[in-house]
């Protein structure tokens, strides 16, 4: 009797488990773990002939990825993603401080405006940026117009097709990912903590250094991750805004899969990117933890 009820209950909870946990689990297995597993297997394989791939567990692809040519592209990708993250951080702070200070009903409008670009396709936004930055674009025309009025000679500035253009594009695209988490951290910030610090003798700079920054560090960390990781793997922006040498690692990977038709090598490069990204996050977390204690 009792065991019957127990079994019925058990049966029930198993159904609940199946219904709620199975679909996401299957989804994850099908669309995340399986592809990654395939990439892992490919990365240890070899290309034979034009289309055939032989799975023979060799490290050749990884040795090839260690070539200085590719290491340099990795380093450059890191440099550009890092610079992008840093610039987003520097730009976000004053913006967020300003947003928290304005009146409540304006806040919502500003936040919606910040989100607005997400409603437009990335490709279109990037082309719009090209329209602004190119030699006969809005920015240069604007300068030219000013120069003409001042009676100066003006040579159009080459904004596009270099690393700076990539960084400008990446910062433009990723800024909201930095602003929103930091805003979330600062918006709910307990004003009395600031007042307590001030009451104990802090200047307003010290209030930020000792109280505000340490307490919103998790939000800042989240923002940095949300910018750094997509920027590191960005493909479209360097493709469209970068120069001939403006290849980042994602572009190289894409070429291996498509033009070079060398899936094993592309897979190896992808895996290296994943390892390195995980490594960066791990180191970052360790540093953050060390600082707390």
């Amino acid at each position: 009797m009792l065991s019957d009820r127990f079994r019925a209950k058990n049966e029930n909870s198993r159904k609940v488990f199946l219904v709620t946990f199975l679909p996401p689990t299957i989804w994850l297995i099908l669309f995340l773990f399986a592809p990654v597993l395939i990439i892992v297997v490919y990365s240890f394989s070899q290309k034979v002939g034009l289309i055939n791939i032989e799975v023979n567990w060799v490290m050749d692809n990884y040795w090839r990825a260690a070539d200085p040519l590719y290491l340099k592209i990795f380093a450059k990708s890191f440099y550009i993603a890092g610079t992008t993250t840093f610039l987003c951080l520097v730009i976000s702070f004053p913006v967020v401080l300003a947003i928290t200070k304005i009146r409540q009903n304006w806040k919502l409008i500003i936040l919606v405006l910040l989100m607005l670009p997400f409603w437009i396709n990335l490709l279109i936004r990037t082309y719009a940026l090209i329209a602004v930055l190119r030699t006969r674009g809005f920015l240069n025309s604007g300068f030219e117009w000013i120069a003409a009025h001042l009676g100066l000679r003006f040579e159009p500035v080459q904004f596009l097709y270099n690393d700076t253009a990539i960084i400008i594009g990446l910062v433009y695209i990723h800024l909201p990912f930095m602003i929103l988490p930091i805003y979330a951290g600062l918006e709910g910030f307990d004003e009395t903590l600031k007042q307590a610090a001030e009451d104990l003798g802090s200047s307003s700079m010290q209030v930020y250094r000792h109280i505000v920054f340490p307490l919103i560090r998790p939000s800042v960390f989240a923002g940095c991750m949300l910018v750094f990781i997509p920027a590191l793997g960005s493909y479209l922006t360097p493709e469209l805004l970068g120069g001939t040498d403006g290849q980042l690692i994602a572009n190289v990977i894409e070429r291996q899969f498509k033009h070079a038709n060398d899936w094993p090598f592309g897979a190896a490069l992808s895996m290296v990117l994943i390892y390195v990204t995980c490594g960066v996050i791990a180191v970052w977390l360790l540093v953050a933890k060390r600082k707390k204690s």
């Binding site: 307990d190 009395t192 007042q195 307590a196 009451d199």
Partner: peptide
């Protein structure tokens, strides 16, 4: 110096 209503301990 102030003891705040919510204590405001860091």
């Amino acid at each position: 110096n102030t003891v705040f209503q919510s204590y405001a301990i860091f």
